[in-house]
Structure formats: C-alpha cells, structure tokens
Design a binder for these strands. Structure first.
Length: 274
DNA sequence: CTAACTCCCTGATAGC
DNA sequence: TGCTATCAGGGAGTTA
C-alpha cells in the first residue's frame, strides 16, 4: 500500500498532533507483525516519553523521543497509522495504540501484518543494517542521472525492477514505478543497460514529478490507504497506467497493456513508451 | 555478484 | 449459497 508519497503524507499529518506530546501508555495486541512487537522496549523507552520529531527514510517513519529512543515504523502493504479520539472502540487489526496527553490515540492498524515496529534504545542502539544499504531518496540531492547510470552499470534487469530496488532508489513501489515510466516514456521491460544519459534524465525528472504530484494529492488510495486523519488520498484519479489494462491511454488512445515482471503486475502504453 | 522466485498474512473478488 | 483460486500497494530470504 504505502509508498513514498503515502508515508510522507502520514509523516506530515503526524507532526502537528504528535510532536511535543507525551505518550502516556502503549497498548499492544497479541498478534505478531512482520517482526515481534517489542513490548518490553515500548514500556521501557516509549511509555511516559515525549516525542521530539517525526522523520522519514525510504518507507520507514522514525519517531524520535526526547530521551533518545527511536521508534522505527514500517507500514508494509496494509499498515495504517492514524489518530482517533479517546474512547473510540478498538477495531479489528488495531495492533498498537499510543495514548497521548492531548486526548488523542495514535493507532497502528494492519490487516495483513506485513508492517513492523522496532524500538531503538537511547544512546547505544543504531539503525538496523538495512538502513546503511538504502539507495538515494528520489526527492533528495543524490538522485541524478549520473548516479543511476553508475548503479546500472553491468546490470541487466528491467528498468521497472531497477526503480523498485531499494538499494538503488527508495520509496518507489509498484504503483509509482509504473506511473513514472509512463511519464518518462519508457517501457517497463527495457533493460537498464540500454538507456542513454538523456533517458536517465527523463527517469529522474519523471520520478520527481510523479512523486511530488502524488504527495500534493495526499497519496493514492486503491483499497486500504488512509492518511493520519483517516482520509483517503486522491492520486488514484491521476493514474495514467496502473490498473488500467485494456483501457485507452489518456495521451494517445492506445490500449494499455499488462505484463508480469518478477511476479508484479506492470502496466504501460505500447505506443507512448519505448 | 545479479536476478528471479517464494513466502509472510488477510480479505476482496471472480468463476464454477 | 458456498467453495476454490487468484490477486493485492512490501520486503527479506533463498535459489539458480
């Protein structure tokens, strides 16, 4: 579900109602998420603590506490992180509830439980190894055509799989990979070895354009996604190819095609994308 | 090393 | 109505 625009939208919604708050109590369900829920650490380092900031790296949210502890949250496919007023009955798949001192409750809800929550203890605990291996932020300064050309050297995989590789560039999942390649005019099956410098420039520009527009729309809601106020995004209205198999290309009228790449549905316009 | 496949989990939907 | 198969936005681990 949540790719970069959705996670960023949630981050921006969390800030005004979470930063500066004290987390009075954390209540967890008995189910495990992708990783076991660190109940003891939540009690030791998060309960009673005050939130200092909310950052994002890739699709991870980093909630930093004044005591130096860090909550590392990932929403997986169906995770939600949203506020409820105090007293709202617990719903199905509400796995973690943070009771705040402003009469709100922040809930981590996840139907499929592919999401995760980790707590880094103050001082001594660093981010997991995965963070050191993450690639460029697509909206950051290091994401450039030369960078992508360097990362693509001696590689053969299709450009779509390359864009979804978090060691290359983070935050781009199946929806936005398809949309970016439409905007850039590149077939998802194109091997990365065949792209010219000018084409890589289109990948960079297309990525920024699509992701920024999606953030401006509050993300894409296909089925589960809601922002921190439990509201849908509306970038799904702007989708050019994702999920549009057999429909007319909004640019040229050709029929949108579907292929499967590494087990993921991939959509493109056979005449606009080369 | 790269690239592709498999699996974690639940729910919606399609087809019989 | 009910059963079964397929698919879904992520990512880690395994295999070739």
């Amino acid at each position: 579900m949540p790719e970069l625009p959705e996670v960023e939208t949630i981050r921006r919604g969390l800030i005004p109602r979470l930063v500066g708050c004290t987390i009075i109590r954390v209540v967890t369900s008995n189910r495990r998420l992708r990783l076991p829920v660190p109940r003891a650490k939540l009690k030791a380092w998060v309960e009673g603590g005050q939130v200092k900031s909310v950052d994002r790296r890739a699709k991870y949210l980093l909630v930093r506490m004044n005591n130096g502890a860090v909550l590392v949250l990932h929403l997986g496919m169906t995770g939600r992180l949203a506020f409820f007023t105090n007293g709202t009955p617990r719903g199905p798949h509400d796995h973690i509830r943070f009771f705040l001192d402003n009469s709100l409750e922040l809930r981590f809800n996840d139907v499929r439980r592919f999401g995760s929550i980790q707590v880094l203890a103050p001082e001594n605990e660093k981010l997991p190894q995965i963070f050191a291996d993450l690639g460029a932020e697509p909206l950051g300064p290091n994401f450039s055509a030369p960078y992508l050309m360097k990362m693509a050297r001696k590689r053969t995989k299709p450009i779509k799989n390359f864009l979804m590789d978090a060691k290359v560039v983070v935050g781009i999942g199946n929806i936005y990979a398809n949309e970016i390649l439409f905007v850039a005019g590149i077939k998802p099956t194109r091997g990365v070895g065949t792209l010219t410098r000018a084409t890589w420039e289109r990948v960079v520009r297309g990525s920024r354009e699509v992701l920024e527009q999606a953030i401006a729309c509050g993300g894409t809601t296909i089925s589960d996604y809601v922002n921190s106020s439990n509201e849908m995004g509306y970038f799904q209205c702007e989708l050019k190819v994702y999920g549009r198999t057999g429909e007319a290309c909004k640019s040229c009228g050709s029929m949108i095609s579907r292929v499967v790449l590494s087990g993921r549905a991939s959509f493109f316009c056979p005449s606009c994308q080369k």
